[in-house]
Design a protein around this nucleic acid. Structure first.
Lengths: 343, 343
DNA sequence: GGCCGGTGTGGTTACGTTCCCACAAGCTCG
DNA sequence: CGAGCTTGTGGGAACGTAACCACACCGGCC
């Protein structure tokens, strides 16, 4: 063994390097840099200086391995490119950052298999908790069985009890429908998603409640539920217009509202002259188009922030805490896309 | 020591558990489950069955610690909620997923300090590579000095040579400006970002080239460069309209195009009757508003995909590979927001 | 018949960190 | 004046995995 060593940046600098350079033991270096345990001020300063000089960055894997938990939380949303989920993730990140946690963001394209694969890597990472917009039941089961905390956001799905933050979808659906009824509509179409998600179920329920209160019979031909990412979404909307002749369309999410808007425009139908349109979840284009779109606005960012807060509370409180479900309130923004029915 | 052990799911199952249960050594179990090295078929099957039954998930921290590298790559973009960056991230994820890599996504709000903090945790994770839309020079320096591969995407910044994928901003800027000149405009405003980013520099350069070719003198009052996330962006655009009286506005990114559009509309200015508008980077609202917005379209998803491919190539090829810079071509989409100048 | 190469397995070590324990000095206080 | 505390430090054992090495067996081949 010669004294020749590779001086290059290839070998990362470790705690042992710092300790040797500062003339202490690795234990002391660890205490100084992690801030846990006794270290005299002079020794601490010396160690910090050396660490800074050598550009020391702790090895997160070693830390996680030793501490059996990490400071990254997983976030899995349905679609990275949907404004709603983007806003949700942004809210989560804000709160997590303040609490000095890291966010790992994953998209699952609303596919249960992709979701499960993503969640599996979170388990592999020994992530202490995961925030998700659930699509399949298996994912949260897997997480829970491995001792990870789960917060469901936007929709609820888990059979096991866990924290969640949702909005009052039923109220949102009811208010949107009542608004249309108040304008004189009786043939109101509902455009929803063909899933078991609580979001759509709630909005549909609100829709039915509003109809019942107004003594308007429920017509199932007016309700179209379209599978996520269906290639023929627009054709289905066309078919709805052809067969059910609604005077108003209530689109239960921002993507469907956009598709409906495009179909209406392509057909040359006037909004709201021929057909009124109400969306759910306000996104920028809705107040840029003419007329502006009446919409049930939901507190997207706050949804993410609440979810993150719930997770942090759980991480500190442990599994004995009773599950908490926060319900946030949506708000109907009446704009120009809704008016009296034709005739 | 009694025989009583905690049977709960709290203690995660390890390779040693699998080995014990299957009656082999940990070495053999490792080989069977990782697929590297000799294992007889019968033993492998037995181990896989046991692993499946016990719900074994490998500890990623232990793996990265041992292997000194991980299969997650870091991605840091300026703004999670901007469609452009979202699309970019989506492209990156597509390619990474196929190659069985994991993406960790981070937003830095175009803030050099936040970027550096994020990058530091990537270093801590021993991430083999990072894809970023750079905002400060320190971040890539830190990564490179720790042996991580860096791919810059959308803009170039690093002083050190590294892989990058950008679009031909100069050409995009030139074509947009030429289009306006061809319609008869001579007072063309440029709305850009007050940074040293190559994106804006390129677009500005293309703008000037087009003017020079057309023998139109450059008027610096027509060029406004607004700091990222400036609270008074709209006021600055108003000021531009007041003092420079342009007949056309070329907004160098989608956010500025949106702001410009809002200001023009609020002022009651007709597009393109009073002022023409060209954007850079096509986003959905641009073809939903009336008139639709003429725009320099860039291959956003492909930008992300290329960046991911470049990173994978680098991870396999090592540091001796010559840096590669891919340049993708933008495309001018002429729509309704541009027309002849008034008068 | 000894040697070699392929096949299959287990023991051991190291990755970088944290944390428990031991220990030592300098106090105070009964 | 020694027991018990506080302050400070170092030794060493984990955490769970992968890789290196040793070894053992079996066939064929010179």
């Amino acid at each position: 063994m010669t004294a020749i060593e590779d001086p290059g940046p290839l070998r990362p600098v470790t705690l042992a390097d710092i300790a040797r350079e500062a003339g202490t033991s690795a234990s002391t270096a660890s205490r100084a840099l992690s801030g846990r345990g006794y270290v005299s001020d002079s020794v601490r300063d010396r160690l910090l200086a050396v660490a800074d000089r050598l550009g020391y960055v702790p090895n997160a894997s070693a830390q996680t391995l030793k501490q059996r938990t990490s400071r990254v939380v997983g976030v899995v949303v349905s679609a990275l490119d949907n404004q709603f989920y983007a806003g949700l993730a942004a809210g989560v990140e804000q709160v997590l950052r303040e609490a000095n946690y890291q966010m790992v963001l994953l998209g699952d394209n609303s596919d249960a298999a992709e979701e499960l694969a993503g969640v599996r890597t979170f388990v592999a990472m020994r992530t202490p908790g995961v925030i998700m917009t659930p699509v399949g039941a298996e994912a949260s089961r897997l997480l829970l069985s491995h001792g990870a905390a789960v917060v469901e956001v936007d929709r609820r799905l888990s059979s096991a009890p866990c924290d969640a933050v949702v909005i009052d979808n039923e109220r949102g659906g009811r208010e949107a429908t009542m608004h249309l009824i108040g304008l004189g509509h009786r043939r109101i179409a509902l455009l929803g998603v063909a899933t078991e998600w609580t979001t759509d179920a709630g909005r549909l329920k609100g829709y039915r409640t509003a109809l019942r209160n107004a003594r308007i019979p429920f017509d199932k031909r007016l309700v179209v539920r379209i599978p996520v990412r269906a290639p023929d979404t627009e054709a289905r909307i066309e078919a709805l217009l052809d067969t059910a002749a609604p005077t108003a369309v209530f689109a239960a999410n921002n993507a469907l509202a956009e598709q409906a808007w495009r179909v209406l425009r392509r057909r040359g139908l006037r909004i709201p002259g021929d057909v009124s349109l109400v969306g759910f979840d306000d996104v920028p284009w809705m107040e840029m188009v003419e007329p502006q779109i009446t919409v049930v606005d939901q507190p997207t960012i706050e949804l993410g922030r609440s979810a993150a807060r719930l997770l942090l509370r759980r991480l500190h409180g442990g599994p004995s805490l009773a599950p908490e479900v926060d319900v946030l309130q949506p708000r109907l923004l009446v704009r120009g896309s809704t008016g009296a029915p034709p005739g």
